[in-house]
Structure formats: C-alpha cells, structure tokens
Amino acid sequence: MKFTIQVNEGPYQHQASDSAYQFTKSALEKGHEIFRVFFYHDGVNNGTRLTTPPQDDRNVVRRWSELGEQYKLDLVICVAAAQRRGIVDDGEAKRNGKDATNIAPGFRISGLGQLVEGAIQAERLVVFGD
C-alpha cells in the first residue's frame, strides 16, 4: 500500500517525529511504499543538518537522511513553513539573499501542493503531530 506521511513537529521537543520515523521504517520493512514524507509546521526543523545531539542519543535528522537514502524516499520540507523557520537550501539562499544553507542530505524544499498531491496519490495519509 502507498502512504504519505505528514510530520508536524520538530525533533526532540515532541515525540511526533520519532513516531513518524518508526512508522515509516516499519511500513517500508513490510514492503509498503512511502510516496512522500512531508514536513510541515515546526516539522521542517527535522531537515537541518546543523543539529548536534549528544553522542548517547538518537540523531533524528541523520536518521531521516539515512532512511531516505536507503529507500530513496521523497523527504519534502514545506517552503512557506521553512522560510518562517530558517530552513534553507541553495535555491532559497539565492532567492532570499541568505548567507548560508542548512538543509540536511536527502531533503528538498517544495510547496504545500506536494502535501495535497501526496494525499491524492497515496492510499493513506498518516499525520504525526503535537
């Protein structure tokens, strides 16, 4: 079955991103397809490579990047939410005159239409939030 996953909260503050990751990983291991993972609201903070969690804790951002690489996942960060919260890729840096980027490997920034398309294309939308 084809899933779209929506993540509404950032890493560490809420469990939502952890729950979404575990669900996504289990679905993939069971042979399901993840059409897209869409990061919205503070969920866009899952896509900054600049986090440095303690050595003895999980690395939420890197974990998404690695799962993304392993399964060729489409990890999409909402552009409007990202601009508000300072998640920046090369295109956004150029467009908005920022002096740095922070997007993590495997993520891309795109529009809200990607969430709506994900809800249309997938057979299930599962939302994780606060």
Partner: peptide
Amino acid sequence: VVLIGAAF
C-alpha cells in the same frame, strides 16, 4: 493548505 489545496 486549504487555499493551496483548492487548486487541485
């Protein structure tokens, strides 16, 4: 989302 989604 509702406003963007309307285009679909």
